[in-house]
Simulated assay, not measured.
Amino acid sequence: MIIDAKGLKKTFTSRGRKGARTVEAVRGVDLEVETGQVYGVLGPNGAGKTTTIRMLATLIRPDAGTAAIAGHDLLKEPAAIRRALGYVSQTGGVEEQNSPRRQVMFAARLYGVADAAAATDRVLKRFDLADIADRPGRTLSGGQKRRVSIALGLVHTPPLLFLDEPTTGLDPQNRANLWDRIRELREQGTSVLLSTHYLEEADALCDRLAIVDHGVVVAEGTPAELKREVSGDVVTLRLDEPERAAAVLGPLAREARVDDQVLRVYVDDGEHTLPKLLSELQEQRLALTSISLDRATLDDVFLAKTGRSLRDTGAEA
């Protein structure tokens, strides 16, 4: 196991005109990440994802809890942990004036890499940056900057890489390209801890994931396991009386839940249950605006665990 964290907590206090305000950013997070996994931390903005990663990266000290990272104690051996990991923040840290080559070379020397020039060449080629390696950072696209950021975190070939919201702001093509790079890292044996608020990203990339909300883990497992916990299929209905419809259809389903005037009915076999649902609605004179049948998604898991949709938090915008 490359990360074994127990009971991590972090509270921040800010002072303003109305006095001190205390925020419990992380309220007791446990994470177990196996070597060679892409492990996701999924949740809306403000859920505590970045604070958790910054604690594990030794950038801020936890108020409580313990962790072993790459075999080193979080509180007693922070320097050893820093040598064993690469960290890519949300902003990335690419300098506007310096070229990728200079920036990566500096990082290699900072980490004490024996042949910094050779390591720089290798990682630039690995991320298709050789042709733009000597351009100023300000001339690079968003996707190119993200690849430079990851190159900065990997130049010393650490066994563990932290990626904090790595695809935020990227267009779909660059996002898909970066997904491929992350899969390659896993195939080459690098363990990745990935924070994201994108449902599709977590589903596509993560071997396991923790869903975090308000500073606590509300669900943990593989994407498939988590979706099976909710139900096999989801029938989504829009109609004028969702609360009454939920009471009517509830006996035919595992669960019927109203969220923002949308009724979601969770069933084991949607294809065979759907005609029964429609018949019951017709009998009760409940008029439909629209209906859809889908497999359960991670958003359904989030909704089941927290009572609201992750998409409705604005995280997917």
Rank of each mutant, 00 (worst) to 15 (best):
K6Y: 14
G7P: 09
R15K: 06
A20G: 10
A25D: 03
R27Q: 06
R27W: 05
D30S: 13
D30E: 08
D30L: 03
V33P: 13
G40Q: 00
V41C: 05
T51R: 06
A57N: 02
D63R: 00
A64T: 06
A67S: 10
K76L: 14
E77Q: 15
E77H: 02
R82Q: 11
L85D: 09
S89G: 08
E96G: 02
P100Y: 05
P100D: 01
R101V: 13
R109C: 05
L110Q: 08
T120H: 03
R122Q: 14
L124H: 09
L124I: 01
A133H: 00
D134E: 07
T139F: 14
T139Y: 08
R146E: 02
L152V: 12
T157P: 06
F162A: 13
F162T: 12
F162I: 13
D164G: 08
L170H: 04
D171H: 01
A176Q: 12
E184H: 10
L185K: 07
Q188N: 11
L194E: 12
T196S: 07
L199P: 09
C206S: 15
D207Q: 10
H214I: 02
T222Y: 10
T222S: 13
P223D: 03
E229Q: 15
G232K: 12
D233V: 02
L237H: 01
R244I: 03
E255P: 10
V258G: 12
D260Q: 15
Q261Y: 14
D269H: 13
L274E: 09
P275N: 06
L286E: 07
L286K: 05
L286A: 00
S292D: 14
D294S: 15
A296F: 02
T297H: 09
K305T: 14
